[in-house]
Write a protein that binds this DNA or RNA. Structure first.
Ligand SMILES: [Mn+2]
Ligand SMILES: [Mn+2]
Ligand SMILES: [Mn+2]
Ligand SMILES: [Mn+2]
Lengths: 222, 222
DNA sequence: AACATTATTTTGAATAGTCAAAGTTAATCG
DNA sequence: CGATTAACTTTGACTATTCAAAATAATGTT
């Protein structure tokens, strides 16, 4: 029914409407995210509107229909379960799974999805800390904050990495800054665009640039 | 580089050239196998010739180039390793894996392929008894015969099922006629188009029609 | 050889997805 | 308000893949 292209558009619209905290996604953002020229996004979106996946209002943007939302959630679920499976079952590197999942999310059946999910013990989060939509299409919302916004002295648990760049993820893996690990925020230096922290419990001290600290989201601990 | 469609054409050309015992595959056979009208196959094949995947001689047919052959073998390898993985790791039913693998063979990277292969212990045959091309692109040839061609009284091991029909495979599973199991051929009745056999060692007797007996390939035992 | 049959190719048209470039709209600024 | 700009849409063109139907070639048959 839905082509791979349509599934990708749906998923990105879902993600963008979340990121923008707005149901309606403007065409510019969508085109940029899909890495196509704006005219392509317009053409595509008009076709998807005709097929009932979304509502398109010229010069306003798109919002998913119920069907569109359902399918977007399923694709996202497949993506994240597959990522988890690649790490847990096939021992792939944290940093390379996103690309793999980008293709696999369109190739696995609902049955395979469920078997993988079962094998993994129905995980709630993927290896990057992103929540996995449930079979019913629900996503848990958490109140997280960026590492860069934490108060000095706070001890926090890394919850989510908001970047898929392989090199960055490899760096985090090397330094132990992976979802689930605990750190303490030591200092912020706005002038130098630096954030100092130490790992817990081993107490290794390190610095991060502003961009990196904004990509690491944490939940308060204790 | 190669689209999913091209990968599918390449794989079927490889399989057909094997089945027909002829490097050159005629357009009619290819179109039928790809489930497209003949004109479509002609168009496609001309484009694939231009891209160097095969050599096309009008009214003669196609033969794979070295590149085409390599890729066809890799796709076939992915297909069969994936089938094995779905059965062994995800406990999918023997009868449903072919469809799944038809999509997955285009979605997994070489790395994922190798991890699955490793996980499975580098199997030589897939769940249907089809040989899995090695990493170097070699396929073992075996001298098998159809069950329908066996001599009366012969004890044989089921090696390969030459049919992907889910209902037929489910039947074989139910009756224990799966690759690896042993049977003895009791009788052939050309008039009634029937073949009688018994399972070994439990000695369950049963009949098979001509078409079914032609789909089950065996190797002589002992 | 002439005709019929079968296999294959060609032609014309359609759909999906894309880009480049030109045209529009709406918002912003002076 | 009118000009400038940013965001967006439209138009025309292209590639990949497909079908239907007509044309052609090869093969077999009287
Ligand atoms: Mn994708
Ligand atoms: Mn992820
Ligand atoms: Mn396939
Ligand atoms: Mn198989």
């Amino acid at each position: 029914m839905a082509s791979i292209t349509i599934e990708n558009y749906l998923k990105q619209i879902l993600l963008l409407s979340d990121e923008l905290a707005n149901e309606r996604v403007p065409m510019g953002k969508l085109a940029e995210r899909m890495q196509v020229v704006p005219g392509t996004a317009t053409t595509m979106v008009k076709a998807m509107d005709r097929s009932g996946w979304l509502n398109y209002i010229p010069r306003e943007g798109v919002s998913l229909t119920e069907e569109g939302n359902q399918l977007a959630l399923k694709v996202l679920r497949k993506h994240r379960v597959v990522e988890m499976f690649l790490v847990e079952a096939l021992k792939l590197d944290w940093s390379e799974i996103h690309q793999e999942a980008e293709a696999l999310e369109h190739a696995i059946s609902d049955k395979v999805l469920d078997r993988m999910d079962e094998y993994l013990g129905r995980p709630a989060y993927d290896p990057h800390g992103d929540p996995i939509p449930t079979r019913l299409g629900e996503i848990k919302a958490r109140k997280l904050q960026a590492l860069s916004e934490c108060q000095k002295g706070q001890t926090v648990r890394i919850a989510q990495i908001k970047q898929q760049d392989a090199r960055f993820l490899q760096f985090l893996d090397r330094t132990g800054l992976t979802p689930g690990s605990t750190i303490r925020v030591l200092d912020h230096d706005a002038t130098a665009d630096l954030h100092q922290l130490e790992t817990v419990p081993d107490g290794r001290k390190m610095h991060l640039g502003g961009k990196a600290a904004e990509s690491i989201w944490v939940s308060p601990k204790g």
